[in-house]
Design a protein around this nucleic acid. Structure first.
Lengths: 272, 272
DNA sequence: TAGTGGTCTAGACCACCAC
DNA sequence: TGGTGGTCTAGACCACTAA
């Protein structure tokens, strides 16, 4: 009946703690009870961050079973309600999935919104019912230039990749990407011929923050040639910068030809 | 000392309830305790939806003070913790603001993300440090055509407005908008010469869900004339559909000239 | 059927902040 | 300084579901 199939074990003990049992004297302290300034965090928030960090860092990859509420509560020396508050938030954020009786598991990366879904261009093309393939045009490993470092948000060695995505023999998208070797050292040797850089990254760094910049541009000579469109034709240019826990992961420029491509997104102020 | 400056009063009693006191016998029932099928909601979720509905509907406009946790708890016949759970979620979603001692207040509409901020083009232009003005090109009240009803998501009478936004005498954006008179009857007589339709709507319907579609298009002859650009020049076309509590409010097409305009957005899977 | 998460309570102490 | 929200507890019952 062993739970915690994968890691867990020393799930989430208090930062310095041994067995983690908090003395009753500390109970019911309210705020932070002493330490002023930096370390002001409620316990449920601390627990939330601990758990989230393990998920985001990849220490607990998708599918990992988390410890049970009771066990985490024990390891923090707090009540189950406090743990529940943290885990409920993680579930609401979509990081974990909770099933009665079964337990709590790290979820697979989900599209936070429609716009995020186009991370994987292959799936995007497949959704259109068209055959998909891609080709690597160039691949270099080098130190990021000043401009590149600015776009990426970090001075580091990078893998610079250019590739084209096709939908039924027609160029669908031109991709110009930088991957930080500081954050993802495995990218140096990854086989991007087999798996497109975007799809590879998604499987490597499942959780991340994303910033988009979207604009309409006229195709210059080079772009026109790459996408087999007329020079000056309108293109949708998407710049996307991805970070995980504040660390830059990748910066990519996607250029979609003509009026064919469309980005959709939805936002809401829902609180449910 | 009276709180509840505005409405509240009969804050949030149970749906059918009189004074709302729940008998002790119902306490600790867990799930839904009986009614199967449709009415399965936890109490804190019910409270959340009740409060949210009052905010979204405009019954409690921005600035309104909500009843205190204790009072709401009393009116629902539940404990303060249960109310706190609902209000904490509303606060996390940005609908309300909570201050110790002061109480809880409905917040002003905030940009859920950067992309939402361009709802008010005037502010967008002002952010660029340029003088802003706009002109109404046409305004009609009519029944939505089939195509329009589809875009809006509802068959209803609408106000159809076309206008241009300027940044320092230069056309900045062409706007083609439909407003549902079913959802916003006041739009029939509103003075859109004084306040642009977008800004007027934001003040009228502060909270809403938004869907975007963004694409690059070549300017047709008409658009080129409106924006004073060359025919065939690339434009960023943004279609935006706004709903509030599921009801269509407005549908707008914004066309921005050339490569000048840029949409930015950010997403994250954060759980904090 | 047993075990897990979902929910709720009736109190409690505390920090913060308006008054 | 008093009142409000923020947090936490030590239970409890229930629903759901995997075993």
């Amino acid at each position: 009946m062993q739970h915690l199939a994968n890691p867990a074990e020393e799930a989430g003990g208090p930062k310095g703690g041994g067995d983690g049992r908090r003395s009753k004297a500390q109970v019911g302290r309210g705020g932070d009870g002493g330490a002023s300034g930096a370390g002001r965090k409620s316990l449920h928030q601390q627990i939330l961050e601990d758990l989230r960090s393990r998920i985001l860092s990849g220490e607990w990859p998708p599918g990992t079973q988390l410890p049970f509420e009771q066990d985490i509560a024990k390891s923090y020396g707090c009540s189950r309600m406090t743990v529940n508050k943290a885990m409920t938030q993680l579930a609401a954020a979509g990081l974990i999935e909770r099933r009665r009786k079964a337990g709590t598991f790290v979820r697979r990366p989900q599209s936070a919104s429609v716009i995020v879904e186009i991370v994987d261009i292959g799936r995007e093309v497949a959704a259109l019912g068209l055959p998909y393939h891609f080709e690597i045009i160039s691949r270099e490993i080098r130190k990021a230039s000043t401009a590149e470092a600015e776009r990426l948000g970090e001075e580091t060695r990078v893998v610079a990749i250019q590739c084209r995505h096709f939908a039924a023999r027609q160029p669908f998208c031109f991709e110009d990407r930088l991957i930080s070797l500081d954050a993802v050292p495995e990218a140096e040797t990854a086989d991007f011929e087999a798996t497109s850089p975007g799809a590879w990254l998604v499987s490597r760094v499942p959780w991340s923050d994303v910033e988009y910049r979207i604009k309409a541009v006229a195709a210059d000579r080079e772009t026109a040639g790459r996408l087999l469109i007329a020079e000056g034709a309108p293109c949708l240019a998407i710049w996307r910068r991805t970070t995980s826990e504040g660390r830059p992961i990748t910066f990519v420029r996607l250029t979609y030809p003509g009026s064919d491509h469309e980005v959709s997104a939805s936002f809401s102020s829902k609180a449910g």
